[in-house]
Computed example of a mutant assay.
Amino acid sequence: MTAEEHKKFLEEDFDDVSLDKLVDISKIRIDRNRTQERRKKQFLRAAGNPYLVKVGDTKVKIRFANNGVSFEDAFENLLLMS
């Protein structure tokens, strides 16, 4: 993901995106036999915008506090759960 893509994803507004345009992350399946780097790429390709997705019929905007768990750690935890 380029810096420009990352910025665009972060700035995408929750109210401007319709539910039917979002990827349901509960349906994404990640190959656990791949390296962590390959799993990340596989998820990003499948999810599109990793910050704005849906779970079932619910829109989800993912944000992280500056003083909490890093995006990298949270993303790795997500991949481990898949």
Score class of each variant (00 low, 15 high):
residue 39 R to Q: 15
residue 53 V to R: 02
residue 69 V to N: 02
residue 13 D to C: 05
residue 53 V to S: 03
residue 65 A to I: 06
residue 10 L to E: 15
residue 75 F to K: 01
residue 30 I to P: 10
residue 70 S to G: 12
residue 41 K to E: 15
residue 29 R to L: 06
residue 1 M to Y: 14
residue 9 F to G: 00
residue 48 G to W: 03
residue 50 P to K: 05
residue 53 V to H: 02
residue 2 T to D: 11
residue 81 M to I: 02
residue 34 R to C: 06
residue 24 D to M: 09
residue 54 K to L: 03
residue 5 E to C: 04
residue 32 R to T: 14
residue 55 V to N: 01
residue 13 D to A: 12
residue 51 Y to I: 04
residue 37 E to H: 06
residue 72 E to M: 01
residue 58 T to N: 07
residue 43 F to G: 01
residue 62 I to D: 00
residue 22 L to E: 14
residue 40 K to W: 04
residue 57 D to A: 01
residue 78 L to S: 02
residue 66 N to Q: 04
residue 24 D to I: 10
residue 36 Q to H: 08
residue 30 I to T: 09
residue 79 L to G: 03
residue 71 F to H: 00
residue 64 F to Y: 15
residue 47 A to H: 07
residue 51 Y to Q: 04
residue 15 D to M: 06
residue 11 E to T: 11
residue 55 V to A: 05
residue 32 R to S: 15
residue 62 I to P: 00
residue 16 D to C: 06
residue 23 V to Q: 11
residue 49 N to V: 07
residue 79 L to M: 05
residue 17 V to W: 09
residue 45 R to F: 09
residue 63 R to I: 07
residue 36 Q to T: 15
residue 74 A to V: 00
residue 65 A to G: 14
residue 16 D to V: 08
residue 8 K to Y: 10
residue 82 S to V: 01
residue 18 S to H: 14
residue 54 K to Q: 13
residue 27 K to I: 05
residue 5 E to S: 12
residue 56 G to Y: 09
residue 75 F to L: 04
residue 1 M to V: 14
residue 49 N to C: 08
residue 77 N to E: 11
residue 56 G to F: 02
residue 54 K to G: 09
residue 29 R to A: 06
residue 21 K to Y: 11
residue 38 R to E: 15
residue 44 L to N: 03
residue 66 N to P: 11
residue 81 M to P: 00
residue 78 L to A: 03
residue 44 L to E: 08
residue 56 G to V: 04
residue 71 F to L: 01
residue 30 I to E: 10
residue 61 K to N: 04
residue 43 F to I: 04
residue 52 L to A: 01
residue 26 S to T: 15
residue 3 A to S: 13
residue 30 I to M: 10
residue 37 E to W: 05
residue 75 F to I: 00
residue 12 E to F: 09
residue 20 D to C: 08
residue 38 R to V: 08
residue 15 D to F: 12
residue 69 V to Q: 12
residue 74 A to T: 09
residue 46 A to N: 10
